[in-house]
C-alpha cells in the first residue's frame, strides 16, 4: 500500500534535505564561533592587540639596530587591559593621563639571551609623560648627554620624548646591549622630542638645584589631595640635602587657601607648629612644622604654594626655603 503519494514523498525529501542542511550549517557555525571564542568577553584571556605601524602607531622596529631585530610582534595596551602587562603599576599611569602602551621585544641576532623590551607609553601630553618619568627615576643614575630628560642604569635606559615616556629594559647587564639601546633612544628622542614640550616650570627652581632631581606630582602630592601639579627637587645647603617644592596656582588667593589647607592637613596628621627663625618665613606667615622629627615648611608667595618636605635639618630647610622664595618672587614679578 502506498502511504504517500509521489508528490508528497518529494516534498518530504525536500524538507528533510533542508533540515539536514540547516543542522550542518548550525554545526559549522558553532565550530567556527567556538574556535574563535573571545574569552575577554568573560573577563578572561589576553586582550592585547598586535600593533602594526599601519594602525597609525609608531613602528618600534624602526628604532632598533640591525644587530637587534624584533623578537616578536609589537603589542598595544589601553586603559582596559594595561594591567595585563604591568599589573599593579597600571594605576599610577592611569592616574597620570595614560592613553596607550606599545611594547616590543628585540634580541641580538647572534645571542638570543641578549634581549631587551621597549615600552612606549603614550601619556597624552609632555607633562604627564614627565610626571611618570620623574616619579620613577632611579637614584644615583647617569643622565645621558644629548638626550633631554633621559638616564641610564646598568641594564636599562629611560627617557621622555614629547608625549611619550619610554623604557628600554635590557635583559642583561651588557655594554653591547646598552650601546644598542642608546642608538634606539637617540633615534626616538630625535623623532619624538620637540623643544615646545620642554617643561618650563623646571627653570623656576634655584640654579643650585641638583640637576635631574626634578619630580612632578600631578595630584595628591605628599598625600594631600589639595596639592596638585607640584614640582619638587633636591637642593643642597652646605652638605645637607633638602627637598623643595612649589605649585603654581591660578592666583595668590588660591595659593594662600591651599597653603593653609596643607598646613592644617599636616597638623591634623600629627605635625607641631614651630616658630621660624627666618625673618623671610615670618614675613610670609609660613608654616614651620616638626613632623615626627623632620621639618616641613609650607607657605604662599604670589601665585605659588611652596615649601620644604621632610628635611632632616631645620636650619638647612629654612635656608633652602628662603632661596626658593627669592627665585619664585622673580617669576611672580
Amino acid at each position: 500500500m502506498r502511504l504517500l503519494s509521489g508528490k508528497a514523498r518529494g516534498l518530504e525529501s525536500a524538507i528533510g534535505t533542508l533540515i539536514l542542511f540547516v543542522l550542518i550549517a548550525t554545526a559549522v557555525g558553532v565550530y567556527v564561533i567556538q574556535k574563535n571564542v573571545n574569552m575577554a568577553r568573560f573577563g578572561q584571556g589576553q586582550t592585547s592587540e598586535e600593533a602594526p605601524a599601519a594602525k597609525g602607531g609608531l613602528n618600534l622596529s624602526s628604532f632598533a639596530t640591525a644587530d637587534f631585530p624584533a623578537a616578536g610582534n609589537a603589542e598595544t595596551y589601553n586603559n582596559d587591559n594595561l594591567y595585563e602587562k604591568i599589573n599593579g603599576k597600571a594605576p599610577m599611569y592611569q592616574e597620570s593621563g595614560f592613553v596607550s602602551l606599545t611594547t616590543q621585544r628585540f634580541a641580538n641576532k647572534e645571542n638570543a639571551e641578549l634581549g631587551l623590551e621597549l615600552f612606549l607609553y603614550d601619556m597624552g601630553n609632555s607633562r604627564n609623560a614627565f610626571s611618570v618619568y620623574s616619579r620613577q627615576k632611579r637614584a644615583d643614575v647617569t643622565d645621558i648627554n644629548g638626550i633631554p630628560a633621559s638616564y641610564k642604569t646598568s641594564n636599562s635606559i629611560y627617557l621622555c620624548a614629547g608625549k611619550f615616556y619610554i623604557e628600554l629594559v635590557g635583559f642583561a647587564e651588557s655594554q653591547e646591549l646598552i650601546d644598542a639601546m642608546l642608538i634606539a633612544a637617540k633615534k626616538m628622542s630625535a623623532q619624538l622630542y620637540d623643544e615646545k614640550d620642554k617643561i618650563t616650570e623646571l627653570s623656576y627652581f634655584p640654579d643650585e638645584t641638583v640637576a635631574g632631581s626634578w619630580k612632578l606630582q600631578l595630584a595628591n602630592a605628599y598625600g594631600f589631595d589639595g596639592l596638585s601639579d607640584t614640582y619638587s627637587a633636591q637642593y643642597k645647603v652646605n652638605d645637607k640635602m633638602v627637598s623643595i617644592f612649589f605649585s603654581k596656582r591660578k592666583n595668590a588667593d588660591e595659593a594662600k587657601t591651599i597653603a593653609k589647607s596643607y598646613n592644617d592637613f599636616l597638623i591634623s596628621n600629627g605635625a607641631k607648629s614651630v616658630e621660624p627663625a627666618s625673618d623671610v618665613l615670618k614675613g610670609l606667615n609660613a608654616g614651620l612644622l616638626d613632623f615626627y622629627g623632620t621639618t616641613e615648611i609650607v607657605l604662599a608667595t604670589g601665585r605659588f604654594v611652596a615649601g620644604v618636605h621632610e628635611a632632616d635639618n631645620r636650619d638647612a630647610a629654612q635656608k633652602a626655603a628662603e632661596v626658593l622664595i627669592e627665585r619664585l618672587n622673580k617669576i611672580n614679578d
Binding site: 632611579r138 646598568s154 641594564n155
Partner: peptide, 10 residues
Amino acid sequence: TNGPTGGSVS
C-alpha cells in the same frame, strides 16, 4: 623601588 615590575637592576 618601582615595583612590582622594576626594570632596572638599580
